[in-house]
Amino acid sequence: MSARDEVLARIRTALGPAREVSEIARAYRTADGRAGAELLDVLTDRLVDYRASVLRCPPGDVAATVSAALHAGLGPGWAAADVVVAPGLPEHWRPAGVREDDGRPAVELAAFAATVTGVAVAIAETGTLVLDGGPRSGRRAVSLLPDCLVCVVEAGQVVGGVPEGLARLEPTAPLTMVSGPSATSDIELQRVEGVHGPRTLVVVLVG
C-alpha cells in the first residue's frame, strides 16, 4: 500500500459509511417585482452609495453625456487621445477623437487615462455592472487597467436581482463584476482606491 492509499483509507475510516446527500433547496426568489423607473432609481442609489458617479440621459444624448462623464472623471483638461473604448461600443455613443481598442498589449492600456465600455447586464439590488468580454464590454484588461472607467448602461439591461442577472449571461464568458470603484482597506482600515482596478467609476444610465 502506498502512502497515498494509506491516507485515503484512514480518511474513509474516519468518515464512516457514506451519508445520504440531502436535496438542495431551490425555492429561493428568482424574480424581482420592481420594474422601469423604480429599478433605475435603485441602481443609481446603490452605485452612489459605492462612491460611483451616475449621469442619466435620454438615448439621443449618450455621446454628450459620455463626454460629461469623462469631464467628471478626469477633469476639464481631458483629451480624447487619452481615452480608449471597447471595439463594439456604438459610434453614436463615442465622443469625437477617442481611440478604439485594437488588441494592443495589455500593459499599453495602462497608459490611457480612461476607458469607455458598455455592459452585459446591471443588477439594481447589488449595484453591480457585469461585463462579459463581448464587443461592447471589451476584453477584461480594457476595463481594469485605465484609472477611470465609464460604463454606459441602457435601461433594458437593468434587472432587479442576481438570479435575473445570471440568467441573462453566458456562464462560460469571462465575467467581470463591478460594484463601485476598485477599493480595499489597509491594516488600519484606511480605504485605498484604485488598487485592483479603476480608481474612478462613472456610469451613464440611458433611459
Rank of each mutant, 00 (worst) to 15 (best):
residue 4 R to E: 15
residue 5 D to P: 04
residue 6 E to A: 15
residue 6 E to S: 14
residue 8 L to I: 15
residue 9 A to E: 15
residue 10 R to V: 13
residue 10 R to S: 14
residue 12 R to C: 05
residue 14 A to P: 06
residue 14 A to F: 14
residue 14 A to Q: 10
residue 15 L to Y: 03
residue 18 A to G: 10
residue 19 R to T: 14
residue 20 E to T: 14
residue 22 S to V: 13
residue 23 E to Y: 09
residue 24 I to K: 12
residue 24 I to S: 08
residue 24 I to P: 07
residue 26 R to E: 15
residue 26 R to W: 13
residue 27 A to Y: 09
residue 28 Y to C: 07
residue 30 T to N: 12
residue 30 T to G: 11
residue 32 D to L: 07
residue 32 D to G: 12
residue 33 G to V: 13
residue 34 R to Q: 07
residue 36 G to L: 10
residue 36 G to T: 12
residue 37 A to I: 09
residue 38 E to A: 15
residue 38 E to Q: 12
residue 38 E to P: 02
residue 38 E to S: 11
residue 43 L to H: 03
residue 44 T to N: 03
residue 44 T to P: 04
residue 46 R to T: 11
residue 46 R to N: 04
residue 48 V to L: 15
residue 49 D to A: 15
residue 50 Y to V: 09
residue 50 Y to Q: 14
residue 51 R to A: 14
residue 51 R to Q: 11
residue 51 R to V: 12
residue 52 A to P: 10
residue 55 L to F: 05
residue 59 P to N: 03
residue 60 G to C: 03
residue 60 G to F: 04
residue 60 G to K: 04
residue 65 T to F: 00
residue 66 V to L: 03
residue 67 S to M: 08
residue 70 L to V: 05
residue 71 H to M: 13
residue 73 G to K: 02
residue 74 L to R: 07
residue 75 G to S: 05
residue 75 G to Y: 02
residue 75 G to V: 07
residue 76 P to T: 11
residue 76 P to V: 13
residue 77 G to P: 04
residue 82 D to K: 12
residue 82 D to C: 10
residue 84 V to H: 07
residue 88 G to Q: 03
residue 90 P to M: 03
residue 90 P to G: 03
residue 90 P to D: 01
residue 97 G to C: 10
residue 97 G to Q: 04
residue 100 E to P: 12
residue 101 D to K: 06
residue 102 D to T: 15
residue 103 G to Y: 05
residue 104 R to H: 04
residue 105 P to S: 09
residue 107 V to C: 09
residue 107 V to F: 11
residue 108 E to K: 11
residue 108 E to H: 12
residue 110 A to S: 13
residue 110 A to E: 09
residue 110 A to Y: 12
residue 112 F to L: 12
residue 114 A to Q: 03
residue 115 T to F: 04
residue 120 A to H: 05
residue 121 V to K: 02
residue 124 A to P: 01
residue 126 T to S: 14
residue 126 T to G: 08
residue 129 L to A: 03
residue 129 L to Q: 06
residue 129 L to E: 01
residue 131 L to T: 02
residue 134 G to P: 11
residue 134 G to T: 10
residue 134 G to F: 02
residue 136 R to T: 13
residue 137 S to T: 12
residue 139 R to A: 02
residue 140 R to L: 08
residue 142 V to C: 06
residue 143 S to V: 06
residue 144 L to D: 03
residue 149 L to P: 02
residue 149 L to R: 06
residue 150 V to P: 02
residue 152 V to D: 00
residue 155 A to I: 00
residue 156 G to V: 01
residue 158 V to A: 00
residue 161 G to C: 12
residue 163 P to H: 13
residue 166 L to G: 07
residue 167 A to H: 07
residue 168 R to M: 07
residue 171 P to Y: 07
residue 171 P to F: 07
residue 172 T to R: 06
residue 172 T to K: 10
residue 174 P to Y: 10
residue 175 L to M: 05
residue 177 M to C: 15
residue 177 M to T: 11
residue 178 V to W: 00
residue 181 P to M: 08
residue 181 P to I: 08
residue 181 P to E: 01
residue 183 A to M: 13
residue 183 A to T: 12
residue 187 I to Q: 14
residue 190 Q to A: 13
residue 190 Q to V: 13
residue 193 E to S: 15
residue 194 G to F: 06
residue 195 V to Q: 09
residue 196 H to T: 13
residue 200 T to K: 07
residue 202 V to R: 02
residue 203 V to I: 05
residue 203 V to F: 00
residue 207 G to Q: 00
